[in-house]
Design a protein around this nucleic acid. Structure first.
Length: 481
RNA sequence: GCCUCCAUGGUCAAGCGGUUAAGACGUCGCCCUCUCACGGCGAAAACAGGGGUUCGAGUCCCCUUGGAGGUGCCA
């Protein structure tokens, strides 16, 4: 039975790299009918962000990544929040101390910082000198009893190698001599990630660990822990990072959007998931559209890529446009309406028709207000907009056409698109003009914009007869000046 | 600095010893058309460099270069 876990630390938002890790982890479990678990890694008390845990639940829910076990859904392996498991770690640390796999260390932070600074100055890497490993047992005991602050460090062998097998990267091996004796239990009694991940993954029966490559080089060290404890390590799958560009990884600090940001901008959940899934994984076919359910079937480790990939907002936007078009008219109307309302009055504009016209033109919801605000108020525009080579128009042609069409429009009683269309077409034919010579200037005259969602007829209908005529009169007057 | 990993168009990527080196986004052109989109058609655009192995290398090995990650009482 496969058990996977997504184990974020509560930093306040779900970044896209984290979302992808969560997605792959989820998909792998679903594909194999396994169990997907959410675990909160909050052992760094100093970095605690209020409300961040709730945000993680919300984001997972918004993404559609339902977990079978987790802090807010329960499960047989809880608690699923590491600070609530604080009492379970020390016993394993002590077990390691007894077997020689770890030792107490009383060195102060200050002393270590100094040593680190010195090593840095010499251009060398810092490595703890195992000073406290050699303390007499009695002294250790005495200082412990005296309540002296201390940590527990992993005792990495001075020679030999440590290694592990990664499902993606294969055999990864390092010389123990290059490894540092990491802190396992901090002075505050809480475990570091280096220790907690090993203990919890084992205790929670995790069979496959999927996580970012930032852990690739420390994984051999974790394997040392597994063997000291006499445990079998899980299958590891390290995932390459998601980059913002060729040199920088995605980060909120540099203004890169989080999953929540994307949602707020009007990117669709399914589009984001689809795009993210393909960022680092390929179905090895030409297919590019997948629902979450379809991904649950299609996903596999073979399609994973080893190189970091760059998050391309442009392609996400394209995906989003495609998903917009896939929506039923009703669904589109529903999600677009709040954005219409930011600039338009539903009593004055036919949202239904507007939605029909806008759906194929919408890439991201946040763009909607700028696309439709001219319905609320006629923007100022340059008369040069009337000039269009292909339509064979310029301000003079426009003035003539608009003047001729004014009474035609005024004569329409039943203000429907069909009626406007027929009346205009008849008049255009009678006047011996080309469609573009009339329709282009008319659209400009009543919208003031070079591009609009819909042509002159649709715009006129949406504006209503009175407003259309009022705008037309104003534009004609301006042309005469 | 040291350690680990990675390397096909601008981007995502297929390829897993023999191909005219797919496809998608983006870009450009044409068509459709009352604008812009949508849609259709087409074009430009890549195996980082050098050595091997092999009859044959984008595919395997080594070196160089470039990039990423790690080197925290952060995860």
């Amino acid at each position: 039975m496969i058990r996977t876990r997504f184990a974020p630390s509560p930093t306040g938002y779900l970044h896209l790299g984290g979302l992808r890790t969560a997605l792959y982890t989820y998909l792998y479990a679903r594909k194999h009918h396994g169990t997907f678990i959410l675990r909160i890694e909050d052992t760094d008390q100093e970095r605690e962000v209020p409300g961040a845990v709730q945000k993680i639940y919300d984001s997972m829910h918004a993404a559609g990544l339902t977990y079978d076990e987790g802090p807010d859904v329960g499960g047989d392996y809880g608690p699923y929040i590491q600070t609530q498991r604080r009492d379970t770690y020390p016993q394993y640390a002590k077990q390691l101390v007894e077997s020689g796999g770890a030792y107490y260390c009383f060195c102060t932070k200050e002393r270590l910082d100094e040593a680190r600074a010195e090593a840095d100055k010499k251009g060398e890497g810092f490595k703890y000198d195992k000073h406290c490993l050699h303390l007499p047992k009695e002294e250790v005991q005495r200082r412990l009893e005296a309540g002296e602050p201390h940590v527990i460090r992993q005792n990495v062998p001075l020679s030999g190698t440590a290694s592990f097998e990664d499902a993606l990267y294969g055999h990864v091996e390092v010389d123990c001599a290059t490894l540092d004796d990491n802190v396992l239990i901090k002075a505050d009694g809480l475990p570091t990630y280096n220790f907690a991940n090993v203990i919890d993954d084992h205790l929670m029966g995790i069979t496959h660990v999927m996580r970012g490559t930032e852990y690739l080089s420390s994984a051999p060290k974790y394997n040392l822990l597994y063997s000291s404890l006499g445990w079998t390590p899980p299958v590891y799958v390290h995932l390459p990072v998601v980059m913002a560009d060729s040199t920088r990884k995605l980060s909120k600090r540099h203004g890169d959007p989080s999953f929540e940001d994307l949602l707020e901008m009007g990117y669709l959940r399914d589009a984001i998931i689809n795009f993210i899934a393909l960022l680092g994984w390929s179905p090895r076919s030409e297919r590019e559209f997948f629902t979450l359910q379809e991904l649950e079937q299609a996903f596999d480790l073979e399609g994973l890529s080893k190189a970091p990939s760059i998050f391309d907002m442009t392609k996400l936007t394209w995906f989003n446009g495609e998903y917009m078009r896939k929506l039923s008219p009703t669904e589109y109307l529903q999600i677009a309406t709040p954005w219409f309302k930011k600039v338009l009055d539903p009593a004055k504009i036919d949202f239904n028709r507007l939605a029909e016209l806008l759906q194929s033109r919408t890439e991201v919801l946040k763009d909607i207000p700028d696309m439709v605000d001219f319905f609320a108020a006629m923007p100022a525009f340059d008369a040069e907009l009337y000039t269009h080579k292909k339509m064979k128009t310029d301000p003079a042609v426009a003035l003539d056409a608009l003047t001729k069409m004014r009474p035609v429009l005024d004569g329409i009683f039943d203000w429907t698109e069909a009626a406007i269309h027929d009346a205009l077409m008849t008049a255009i034919a009678e006047a011996g003009l080309k469609n573009g010579q009339v329709l282009w200037p008319l659209r400009i005259a009543i919208s003031g914009k070079a591009s609009t969602p819909g042509g002159a007829i649709e715009i006129a209908y949406l504006l209503g007869k009175d407003e259309t005529l009022a705008r037309l009169d104003r534009s004609i007057a301006q042309l005469k000046q």
